[in-house]
Design a protein around this nucleic acid. Structure first.
Lengths: 191, 191
DNA sequence: CTTTTTTATTGATATAGGTCAATGCTATTT
DNA sequence: AAATAGCATTGACCTATATCAATAAAAAAG
């Protein structure tokens, strides 16, 4: 159950067997079906979810009813509404499963306790958050600086796995363009 | 010199006098003139900068020569290219001073050493990074979901200090719109 | 204080990408 | 395997915002 999890953690920090056993006690496994919600707008995000298997997405829905993809998470990635999780405020996001998934959940209390009892995990999350900042910053710059076509080409070049795994309409939303525009870009590129 | 700094730190974590004195040893003060660069594209970002006084900006310049504002930092805020700082890769950003500023600089080595020797600072930065993720995520969603006018109204509502302090052309760039468009939006709002 | 440089405003025009609607595909579901 | 629902593609048209250009206003420099 924790194979993917600890291989991820070990990529970033050194962690002993003892620490690993302690860390395990803070998590509980959960299976979630395709299209099932893990979080709905208005609810407080009670857990951080680590994806052992499957595929999740988070998104917000604006006043016009349009969805905006925030994040995709497959094997080895985390998913949550961090703002809601940390502040206990109601979320403005939805999280659901694109594919049937197996998750490891940790509550806010568990998270805080784990970080205090296992300092190496404080370090792990600091590093994780660092990396997250970097990728968000990149995405932001791309959304400001590039045309729809350039954004798609960047994604193809830098995140081919995402393009393979994720349905086109969700990729369009992730890039901040319409599915029609993405379809036209793809046609144009082929020639 | 460290007044603003420790008042910021104390907002987020509990820190003893002893720890404060140790932390101080890792920083060196620096004054920087208006329009002076702290970082230029191609250089490695050698320091995290804490702004005790003044105003900095970071931005990237695309192939067309257009600037894209990434971040503004005034009293109590941090500034760096985190990616370059952490990875020691050449930066793709510029950082310069909008106003004459007083900074506290910490090197990468100093940073790593400080986090190991003063664990409460590891915690401080984890919290700082969390908050950064949240604000980047918000900005990203706004850039995807909202029109130019909506983005400006959001900024006015949620970040009035930024609108007051920062010249209009830089605000336009921060919002991903042209100065002309921002000017027209302002005229429209006035009526 | 005057000159020079930088920034903001305004107008005219162009365009990338959105919206709406129809049709054809691809997956689920029964 | 047939039926149904959800996606992708394509075309016609529209709109928000960019671009270019010319002043006007404000700020910095001498």
């Amino acid at each position: 159950m924790f194979e993917v999890f600890f291989s991820q953690v070990k990529d970033k920090v050194l962690i002993s067997e003892q620490e690993q056993n302690l860390v395990k006690t803070f998590f509980s496994p959960k299976k979630i079906r395709k299209k099932q919600y893990l979080l709905q707008e208005g609810d407080v995000c009670k857990h951080l979810a680590f994806v052992e298997k499957g595929l999740l997405r988070s998104y917000s829905v604006d006043e016009r009813g349009t969805e905006h993809m925030i994040h995709f998470a497959w094997e080895g990635w985390w998913m949550a509404d961090i703002l809601s999780f940390l502040s206990a405020e109601p979320s403005t996001y939805f999280i659901d499963a694109i594919e049937e998934s197996e998750l490891l959940l940790i509550s806010f209390q568990g998270f805080e306790e784990m970080l205090l009892k296992v300092p190496v995990m404080e370090r792990y999350f600091r590093i994780l958050f660092q990396n997250n900042i970097i990728s968000k910053e990149r995405r932001l710059i791309q959304s400001l600086a590039y045309s729809a076509e350039e954004k798609y080409l960047h994604l193809l070049a830098n995140n081919p796995k995402l393009v393979q795994k994720i349905p086109q309409n969700l990729i369009a939303s992730y890039l901040g363009i319409t599915p029609e525009t993405l379809s036209r870009i793809k046609r144009k590129i082929k020639q």
